[in-house]
Write a protein that binds this DNA or RNA. Structure first.
Lengths: 347, 347
DNA sequence: TATTGGCACTCGGGGTTGTAGAGTGCCAAT
DNA sequence: ATTGGCACTCTACAACCCCGAGTGCCAATA
């Protein structure tokens, strides 16, 4: 169901959406007539508007009001945006400075980036980690807590630390745990966790493992850790309060649902996970998803590369009535900047 | 400025506050007259009410409305609550079950407890870690990230993991880092970080350290880590969306300020830090603090003991119009339960 | 045939007015 | 000291009206 618009209709749609994004008020035919250079009369504009409404791109809040874009209208608008938006030099400067200060440790970036996105866009900034199976092992370490309770700590190549408690069949002494950790690092560092798991499974199948205690410990503990690893991806949200500034969320109930969604995070991750893994910045209009809580929200998202690991996501979350050009430029710039920074430093 | 109330006035104040907490509506003299057993007439109640208002314990939203408690009124009410509140057996059961499932790892408890508090109270649950200087060293570990960037990971006795990136003067090889870590653990595990720092300072002053490379490394790295440790205490908040359910926050602007406070956390920690470190549950009426964002909020707080470490805080944060008896009982029970659980398991 | 000016119509928002109900304060009676 | 009674006050709610913005449609026009 491809909608074809002639030049003028497209122009008018663009103007309406842009004007509505700026003002938040329904826009009438007069406003547009004054805006368009080729001096069209309000009446003519009205005709086009009626057409656009029939196609489902515009809507009227009530009979005698101006038009506002439908989500379909936003979609058209977004798709017709020039691909390479410009970023204000001032913003550019802030980003360059902040990212340069990064120590090159993953966790730091993961906290800084969403804050940066949030601050510069005055919206919600988010960052989703790459899937855990793609993390490259740098270091792993086991610490005995109590009998049969072991704390496992893992560091991935980009410096992201994660840890969890393992419950084991037998009771290990700390010394054995350290040996096991060192063995795993020596043997597998530089591999992704997915690969490590495969190797471990293979090792477990080999007979040799049954006799070498050190090897057996290492394999058991390693497997235990990887199995305990939840498949859910980590996500950082920042600036959620910014969303409250927007008048479209003055309704308390909508807002409660929204914050609930933020608090759970889960649904956002799966939403982004389903996104087609294309390069470049993508825009998702809230209602295109099936989550009602995201009703009047939109996401601007870009994948990023952390070293040569598979992609994580970062972007901006804001009301559907958002300045997409700015947002897209911002996300685009930060994402590519971050990718190159991390990839370079990783060598 | 001690306010003395006679028996009847106290009774009426209690009834008014209780009724207002339940209904959220200003309560009139009729309601109270019907409630009190010793059949007082509304007119008499009105007289008492006028007195209470003069004392600043009650207020009228407008001339012809019932009375609502002032914060001073709440304070009186709270102080006159019976100290040992009963907890519903059903809640008790839930808590017992959930806490029993705890693996004895600190981080798990730190996440579970606020959730539990939040769920059972339908308010915001929080937990503040003990001051970092009181954490007992169990394990420390250094991982080389890049040249002169080192990731330091620390585990305290209760299993809480924290980590940060150190920038060092010289470049260490991983092997030296491991030796340094092992040295620190062997020498100092079981001491609080505060004590560890003292020892390190002393060691650094001794001449011997200048010649033994291993020792020097360990001292340098240890000091570096402890200095980088921010003095700010960690805090976990859970269920912030619950606050939105309460009608008193329907005003968007108040709410935005509130969420801002939540997001920053800092101010809440310092607030609790200033609290008199008494045993038992304490109630802070929001306006008793100087933070305007906490205007119509109250805190129910209790310190807890984690092993023999100094105290952290846990509790409930909700609107000043909150069911204090329930909340106090809940916080009391969870706090003492947690303390005993952690202390026992630590042996 | 596409565009335009004109005109009647519609609808929401804001201000005004009226009314019912809840609750008070005060006073005189008990 | 307590109480019944009464006049008074104030809010919340609904009804109403009117203004202005904007539309849809039609007949006139280039």
């Amino acid at each position: 169901m491809e909608i074809v618009l002639d030049e003028r209709a497209r122009e008018i749609l663009k103007d309406i959406v842009a004007s509505y994004i700026l003002s938040g008020e329904p826009v009438g035919s007069r406003t547009i007539a004054k805006l368009t250079r080729e001096g069209l009369s309000p009446a003519s504009v009205r005709n086009v508007m009626a057409d656009l409404e029939e196609m489902g791109l515009l809507a009227q809040p009530h009979t005698s009001a101006g038009r506002i874009p439908t989500d379909k209208g936003y979609r058209h608008y977004v798709d017709s945006l020039p691909p390479a938006g410009r970023l204000a030099p001032r913003d550019r400067l802030v980003i360059d400075e902040d990212l340069a200060r990064l120590g090159g440790e993953g966790s730091e970036a993961m906290e800084l980036i969403p804050k940066l996105l949030s601050r510069l866009s005055s919206q919600v900034g988010y960052l989703i980690f790459p899937p855990i199976t793609e993390a490259v092992l740098k270091h792993i370490e086991f610490v005995r807590l109590h009998a049969r309770k072991i704390l496992a700590i893992l560091v991935d190549r980009s410096g992201v630390v994660s840890h969890r408690v393992l419950e084991t069949e037998e009771d290990y002494v700390q010394d054995d745990l350290e040996k096991a950790g060192r063995y795993l690092v020596a043997e597998f560092s530089g591999l992704t966790l997915g690969e490590v798991r495969q190797r471990l499974v293979r090792l477990m199948a080999e007979e040799k493992a049954a006799f070498d205690r050190l090897l057996k410990n290492a394999v058991t503990l390693g497997t235990c850790y990887l199995d305990a690893e939840p498949s859910e991806r980590r996500m950082v949200l920042e600036g959620t309060t910014n969303i409250l500034k927007h008048p479209e969320f003055s309704d308390v109930e909508t807002m409660r649902r929204l914050f609930q969604t933020f608090e759970e995070r889960h649904s956002l991750v799966t939403l982004l996970d389903r996104l087609f893994d294309a390069p470049g910045v993508q825009v998702v209009i809230g209602s295109e998803t099936d989550d009602p809580a995201l009703g009047s929200l939109s996401l601007v998202a870009s994948s990023y590369r952390l070293g040569d690991q598979a992609n994580g996501w970062l972007g901006i979350l804001g009301p559907t009535r958002m300045e997409y050009d700015r947002a897209v430029a911002l996300v685009e710039y930060i994402s590519s900047h971050l990718s190159s920074l991390l990839t370079r430093q990783d060598l």
